[in-house]
Design a protein around this nucleic acid. Sequence first.
DNA 1: AAATCGGGGAG
DNA 2: CTCCCAGATTT
Length: 344
Amino acid sequence: MTASNPLFADRLIAWQEQYGRHDLPWQVSDPYRIWLSEVMLQQTQVGTVIPYFLNFIARFPDVAALASASPDDVLAAWSGLGYYSRARNLHRAAQMLVNSHGGHFPQAPEALIELPGVGRSTAAAIAVFAFGARAAILDGNVKRVLARWAGIEGWPGEKRVENTLWQLAESLLPSSGIAGYTQGLMDLGSQVCTRTRPCCGACPVKEDCVACIAGRQSQLPAPKPRKTIPERHVVLLLIRDARGRIFLERRPPAGIWGGLWSLPEAQDTLSAASLCACRYGVNVDFDPPLPDVRHTFTHFHLAITPLPGAVNGAVVVTDSGTGWFDLVDIETLGLPAPVRRLLK
DNA sequence: AAATCGGGGAG
DNA sequence: CTCCCAGATTT
């Protein structure tokens, strides 16, 4: 049902006609402008591309003009867009078109993909918009739309996930109205099915969207797995009083270990004493730090430096967010696992 | 500060 | 094949 639902394309086409974009400067029949826009849009947003596009076609109105331009002039027209290999590839491709294709664009995606700077998705987009070919695109917007609609798990940068998405994209193609459908996918991804806070109320395929139905819009598509999990470091203070009790502090309600009793936390070993005096009104003599303890969370590593110390003199009365506890009582307290381990 | 984006090129 | 990069922009 999902992989071959004809209604998906029909709803998208109808939505695009009413709500999609129809007046972009590259929504023309000229393959040159379509190609140029697709390359510019590869890593750059529509709003940024428009002025560059207009300037570019003013300077280089067709393939022949671009092919005969100097590399410096092409780069100059590209300056500010970034990813300058796109401009160099564009220039090379224009010369290939003039020298090997009589200045005309080949129509098949398999031929278009031979041009430098044109990959599978860009080749399909050109073939669709310029020649009405029945081909699937898969850019970032489309990946997001399809991953959400079909509930495809995993990070789309992963080969397996990307293959699944390509397969799905091919299977959803309509038998007619390919240009409106393709434009609709792009428009939906950029205007409705946005990365954060998608406007699902305005979506034409919300009725059978897995992410929308399950409320999993923020989880699909899965984000890129962090290669290096961030490393954070804290100093946890093991403060004892004369009776051997340990000083604990209740953590703020939100954030890590929210609301749990925990050891006081310092930025570093040097600032610990002044922190205790200032914040808790106690004078603490600290011993040398104990060896670090590592604890791994889902999204970061935490290196804990345990810093033992003892209060000298009378203990000042504390507020309800802090307290002195006997080790036996600590057993029954809600403590973060690494803190509990530390206290043993 | 970290993620994003499609294609090319290196390994 | 599988990484890793380019760069401006967004979060």
